[in-house]
Write a protein that binds this DNA or RNA. Sequence first.
DNA 1: ATTAATTTTTAAGTAAGCTTAAAAATTTTT
DNA 2: AAAAATTTTTAAGCTTACTTAAAAATTAAT
Lengths: 219, 219
Amino acid sequence: MSVAIENFVKAIYNNENHDITDTKPGNIASKLGISSAAATDMAKKLDAKGLLNYEKYQALRLTKKGEKMALNVVRKHRLWEALLHQMFDMSLHEIHREAELLEHETSDFLAEKISEYLGHPKFDPHGDPIPNADGEITTKDTSIALINAEENTEYIVSRLMSTDKEFFEFCALNGIKYGNKIAVKKQFQNSKMTQITIHSNTIVLNQDFTQIIYVNEIN
Amino acid sequence: MSVAIENFVKAIYNNENHDITDTKPGNIASKLGISSAAATDMAKKLDAKGLLNYEKYQALRLTKKGEKMALNVVRKHRLWEALLHQMFDMSLHEIHREAELLEHETSDFLAEKISEYLGHPKFDPHGDPIPNADGEITTKDTSIALINAEENTEYIVSRLMSTDKEFFEFCALNGIKYGNKIAVKKQFQNSKMTQITIHSNTIVLNQDFTQIIYVNEIN
DNA sequence: ATTAATTTTTAAGTAAGCTTAAAAATTTTT
DNA sequence: AAAAATTTTTAAGCTTACTTAAAAATTAAT
């Protein structure tokens, strides 16, 4: 499939995955740096191909087939990031830039070779889960609020589900960001608060925050 | 630059490199699997871009700029082949197939990282020389006829400059093929013959053959 | 509940990279 | 040196993936 189509489908997938409810052509357009008109055209074309459902003025929704394509590209992207990070010690920014190009020119065969070589990793260097060859993500992230505190388990921040500026300021101040390691030390049942450690700092978070900070367990 | 342009320039380069004197649109067309008409159009376009010289009905000749572009793509191709071969133990056919795609989506930055990682190899797994970052091939192959026989030096067959069917039958029979190791044991000055070993077989070749078998010294 | 602002869609048009078919030039054969 | 065969070029047309500008619909504001 063409690079344009793969990127289009991937953009919708990423949007949906970040719980943005209605993904309209305009959103995808600005994400991909194309005009809304081009995005509408593409949406119609991909509807005809059975990759998504398009109805005038409505949100775009990937079909199973479209999601599978997106997951295949995402898998390749994250495998490349993992490989480049491990082998060449490139920065997170650099690996992303290169993976963005390589992902479209990688055969399923090569992706499997990379995965094997790395021991079938479940996460990329950002902490994002790597789908398997069938497009399944076995490891689902959960909000901190739902985790049972266990001394020795470490987690990687996967999502900060908020649009509140102050929340992000708080996160920045405390090193709570995408890809960083944290440990959940104690759940206070009555007050619904959670004690975590991050960068050897201990913080207590109330429910407002623990419900919107998502993490992945480290394999 | 686009994939189509990179492949076009590379096809001309490879042709020239195999001493095929006149490379016309038709040759490139059949190599790339496009029509002659498309190749002619492209040739005109690349002439305007200063990548080659095009004159109606004449052979295509790369400019310095065009050759530099070709060498840049060839470098990436061969570095990928070397990396994939070493890391994933993929066959020569497989690494070629993957490199053919990856070469166009590889930044100079990443190419340099791969080269560094591999210790700046001078040859790929086929025995073809890898141009450096400036597009220079420091190691030039030479015909067997010009080599001084030295016991411990090994060579890799790089080119068989012939179109004669019988010559290729002879080569196939004796394991003389692209990428295979040989040693030059003795030059007979008067008769202009050369004794070589290949796969622990000893063969004596006359000048007709030694002048068209090209090899690279192993680093 | 209108009006205003924004977003989406339609319509027309462009550039890249192809195609086929016919015309023109070259090369080969006799 | 003509005739025949082949190759190259021209011409017209197609698809993909965009663009801008105007029309249509939706969403937000008063």
